[in-house]
C-alpha cells in the first residue's frame, strides 16, 4: 500500500523526506500551491531556478525542491535572482521568501525589480512576523499587536505589500491567504506565465510565533480567521476603511502587459540608435 507516493513528491529531492516547518505552518500549504502550479502548467523542474533568502519561508525551495536552488542572504534573493535571470533568460526564475526578508531588509530590491519589470515570479510568504528569529515585529505586523520587540504594542503601521508592489510597476500582483490555496495556485500559474515582474503575496499562518503573540493560537484558528475575514478585492472596493479594518483583501491587484526589462534591453540594442557602431 505504501509504494504509493504523493503526486508532488517527484518534484522533491529524494533524500529530503520532510518539510522543515513546524506543525500546521502555512508555508507547507504554499509549497504545495507552488508545486501544483508547476505540475498543472506541465513544466519540469529543469525549466526553473529557485532563489530564496533567509527565514522559515526561504526554506520552501531549499533543500526541498529537486531543481537548481540558490539559498542566499537575508533580504537579497531578488537581487541574486535578477542576475540569474539575466544569465538564463529562457528559464523561469522564482523567488520564495518571507515578509521580513522581502519587504523589510530587502524592500528596496522588491520595488526596484517591480519597477524594472524584470521577468520573475516572487512568492512573498507573509506571516506578519519574523518567524525564524522568534516572533519579532515585522513591517507586516498589525498595528497595536504585542510582540517580542513591541512589548507595549506595535506603534508602527503595516505595509500593504501588494499595493506597494502594484504601485512600483509590477505586471502581475495577487494576494491570497492559505485558506485559498486553489486560487493561489491559479495566480502562481499566471505569474509564471506572465512576461514581466509578478508577485503573489501569500498570507499565511505561523502558529508558533504569530499564533503565540496574537493569541490566535493554533493553525486551525488562524485559518478560520482567513476563512471569515478574507474578502475579494472587487467587494472591498465598495467598502470603507473602517469596515475593512479586520478584513484581508484577496484577489488580483494588477494583471497587465508591458515591456519587460530583458527583452526591452535587447530591442533597444537593435533599435535605430543602438544598431550602429
Amino acid at each position: 500500500m505504501s509504494e504509493k507516493t504523493h503526486p508532488l513528491r517527484k518534484y522533491m529531492r529524494p533524500q529530503v523526506k520532510k518539510t522543515t516547518f513546524c506543525p500546521g505552518c502555512g508555508a507547507g500549504i504554499i509549497t504545495q500551491a507552488l508545486l501544483r502550479a508547476i505540475d498543472e502548467l506541465g513544466l519540469t523542474m529543469d525549466d526553473f531556478v529557485f532563489v530564496s533568502g533567509i527565514g522559515c519561508s526561504a526554506w520552501i525551495p531549499s533543500p526541498l525542491f529537486n531543481a537548481d536552488t540558490l539559498h542566499t542572504t537575508h533580504g537579497r534573493p531578488i537581487a541574486f535572482a535578477s542576475g540569474v535571470k539575466m544569465g538564463l533568460p529562457d528559464k523561469h526564475v522564482i523567488v520564495v521568501s518571507g515578509d521580513g526578508d522581502l519587504s523589510a531588509i530587502g524592500g528596496n530590491h522588491l520595488i526596484h525589480a517591480a519597477r524594472r519589470n524584470i521577468d520573475m515570479t516572487v512568492i512573498l510568504v507573509n506571516n506578519g512576523i519574523y518567524g525564524m528569529t522568534g516572533g519579532q515585529t515585522a513591517p507586516t505586523t498589525p498595528h497595536g499587536l504585542i510582540t517580542i520587540t513591541s512589548p507595549y504594542g506595535n506603534a508602527e503601521h503595516e505595509f500593504d505589500i501588494s499595493s506597494l508592489v502594484t504601485a512600483a510597476g509590477a505586471s502581475y500582483v495577487a494576494r491570497w491567504t492559505a485558506y485559498h490555496p486553489r486560487q493561489m495556485t491559479k495566480s502562481i500559474k499566471k505569474g509564471i506565465e506572465k512576461k514581466g515582474f509578478a508577485m503573489i503575496e501569500a498570507i499565511t499562518q505561523c502558529p508558533v510565533q504569530f499564533g503565540r503573540v496574537s493569541k490566535q493560537g493554533s493553525a486551525v484558528n488562524m485559518m478560520k480567521n482567513y476563512k471569515e475575514n478574507g474578502i475579494r478585492i472587487e467587494k472591498a472596493a465598495r467598502m470603507d476603511a473602517s469596515e475593512l479594518l479586520v478584513k484581508i483583501v484577496e484577489g488580483e491587484f494588477v494583471d497587465c502587459d508591458k515591456p519587460e526589462l530583458i527583452s526591452s534591453s535587447a530591442a533597444a540594442l537593435q533599435g535605430p540608435t543602438g544598431g550602429s557602431n
Partner: peptide, 10 residues
C-alpha cells in the same frame, strides 16, 4: 490533500 502542509495525504 491540497491543504495538508506536509504532503501526508493524496
Amino acid at each position: 490533500m491540497i491543504y495538508c502542509p506536509d504532503f501526508a495525504i493524496a
